[in-house]
Design a binder for these strands. Sequence first.
RNA 1: GCGCCCGUAGCUCAGCAGGAUAGAGCACUGGUUUCCUAAACCAGGGGUCGCAGGUUCGAAUCCUGCCGGGCGCGCCA
Length: 566
Amino acid sequence: MQEFTDKIRAALSERSGLPAQGLKLEQPRDPKLGDFAFPCFPLAKALKKAPPAIAAELAGELAEDLDGISVEAAGPYLNFRVDPARLAESVVSAAVEAGSSYGSTRDGEGKKIVIDLSSPNIAKPMSVGHLRSTVIGGALQRIFDALGYETVGINHIGDWGSQFGKLIAALDRWGAETDLETDPIQALLALYVRYHEEEESDPELAEAGRAAFRALEGGEDEEVRRKWEHITELSLAEFDKIYSRLGVTFDEVRGEAFYEPYLESAVDRVEAAGITEMSEGALIVDLSHISESTPPCLLRKTDGTTLYATRDLAAVFHRWELYEFTRCLYVVGGDQRLHFQQLKGVLERMELDWEERVEHIAFGMMRLPEGRMSTRKGRVIFLEDVLDRAVEEALRIIHEKNPDLSCAAEVAEQVGVGAVVFNDLRRERIKDVEFDWDEILSFEGETGPYVQYTHARLASIQRKAKDRGEGEGEPDWAALEDARGVLLRIGRFPDVLRSAARNAEPSEVSTWLLGLSREVNGWYASHRVLGQDSGVTTARLALVRATQQALAAGLRLLGVAAPDEM
RNA sequence: GCGCCCGUAGCUCAGCAGGAUAGAGCACUGGUUUCCUAAACCAGGGGUCGCAGGUUCGAAUCCUGCCGGGCGCGCCA
């Protein structure tokens, strides 16, 4: 479709003298007005004429330049309409030829994008809260891949810090009475909760926790190290089960511990920049250049051990040296805004010019109706339970609506998990979401299953056409005149992807999928594909195919399966 | 107290880097299946775009203040 917009821009640029790139083509309010619109207001000043007069004049001139595109002035607007047959042929062919890679470009060739995603903490179960980073990050990685970037998805496991000292202390004290093998994460969680319950009234326990972390960080105590490694292995094995259901893979799975050997040099590097100071016994970087009230970044505690910020600093240095990224995206909740502001603040004070390539891709918090989730207080919803219930519900509906479906269990998994994933990617990532079972188990309206269902019906028509040997004639492209809405949606996909990547916003893809589904469902309800005049059937079938593939391409980027039957 | 984020229909959200009469879904009411999957489609009601100023030919969109909600604020991660 870009061929048409390029043509319009070029002609407009020629006639107005403005650079083609800056000309913004919009969609007319009412689709009846045209396919693209150009408001003439910005030209008024330069030409010293009223916008409607400019529009009228340009309409006449442009009509000569644009072959196959009609122009009409409507007040201060210029409305363009592409010849229906040309639009149909162009959009449908592009989508069908590209197939599952429709929307892909080479925009990002030679550029690297590092994405920090998921990043759960060891020894804690994955809650629906962790879903967000995993699913948003996974979608972003696929979107950037599709645009030709080289991406590096890093799962930065929270496997380090004083909490593991606490856990080891708890294990030392109560390990004998704990079964770690049957359900390791639940057992570890119970230990963690118990530690916190007893810590306050038991100074010895608190000291044991601190001592264990010191020993862990010191690296000389083999015993402590082994316990920590065991905890890590148990947890990672559990996480992998979820990741495989979500279809998420990583290029690197690195715990914070991985950066442990780099901590000293990271601190040295910051110190060498001459921006550190001692404050109340701790090593800090002052950040008052950001604002008077920005708290300093702590690199080292009074007892000499490092902190979260130190490790993230070591990690970002390491990533820069390894990849020289174009963008380094941290898909982390908005509650950590200050942390990333401080991290970037330190890089800024070090005068590293790549500081602005580091971005915090913040997302809203997942909350329960009764408030914030809290693992310690047992106020959490486990991701596994949500997936299981969604799949169960999908299976129930399949039995009800399509009892003959052959691979029902497999499709139920695709639909159930798809519903959960899509639901999370449906709204702008920045918005907080309140967890709601009814919403997540709903498969009607603006949901993943709605898009999947649309896809399945389009796939079904193609199967039937093949059986009957229909749709092999010369396509009568003009017959797609009244599928304009569908065509324009399909044609817009490459722009949607670019925008989604620029804004690191997967919801732009979900919104597009819902719009295309709505559009094609409306068309489907009033047009029959099979059994028409050969040219009409062929053209409609091609549209069906193009739409089906476009939907599949979009769903794939979001990490949602596109079953052919459901 | 200070800082950041959010605020569009009863509910959940779109509204594309300011542009034409603010759009969907859910819920509610009514309709559509001898016809390619009714997880669908069509029709209907429902809005002072939190409030007040400002910038502009033009503001849901940009700026300022206020209100409401969320999050955060040195040795946790």
